[in-house]
Amino acid sequence: MRLRRTKLYLPGNNPNMLLRGHLFNPDGVILDLEDAVAVSEKDAARILVRDVLRRGDFGSCEVTVRINAMDTEFWRTDIETVVPCGIDGIRIPKVENPKDIALMDEALSQIESKAKIRVGKTLIFCLLETALGIWRAYDIAKASRRVAAICPGGEDLRADLKTTRSPNSEELIGPRRMVVLAAHAAGVDALDTVFADITDDAGLRRESEWVKQLGYQGKSVIHPNQIPIIHDVFTPTAKEIEQAKKIVEAAAEAAARGLGAVQVDGKMVDKPVVKRAEFTLQRAGLKAGGEK
């Protein structure tokens, strides 16, 4: 299982952040060619991002690039430039149509093949930033085997919903629930949007706890200071890990003896409980497996 608790956005035309962002130890970095880059700087950012990717010094981070949306003139050049560098994935903004994902899959395969990269290596992360995108979340997640995660939008989605930001983001409750349901039904990760107020640590913790409870695997991050808070929320505690180990071990023992259920600390443990315990261990990095 790949940990995706935090994915830090790095502005694509900012050498300082591009070269140093991974040092803050997020689980992943997103080199951003989209909103963080002015239209007049797309060309220069693309070259800079390409060269930073070629250097390839990102520690253990999952490396993705947010390309420009597929209704712009930039996206093809974006992928032709960054995919041959051997990145882990691309993040596509404003996805609304499963057919676009199929088209992207094909385009990626061609580039990978030409660059002698394993076809299928480059994963797709879909940003669903419109009502239509959210509505079609499941079909989008199933449109290609490359899709690793779907993510609800923030500000763009609010605008499309003709609403504004409220203190507790009530306006995004429905979309967030739809995305997490679609993600798990499709077998991909659900990754939450950014928390925009970088000075409100308590608000970030509250929101992270809430989306974790909904079933999200992590959040996008716009400031390095947000990383430890989100990691703290999404990392199982020592007590949770201990309990999970007990359950998994007891289940394995029961299976070896041909038993279906077993007791742990006086409580019946059946399949869903074991599954949850395995997931806790995966999240703690103590067990392999899980989603791509």
Partner: peptide, 15 residues
């Protein structure tokens, strides 16, 4: 550094 300088030279020349 070298990496950034080279990227900027390339971008300027292409422009």
């Amino acid at each position: 550094g070298d990496l950034v300088l080279k990227a900027r030279v390339e971008a300027a020349v292409r422009r």
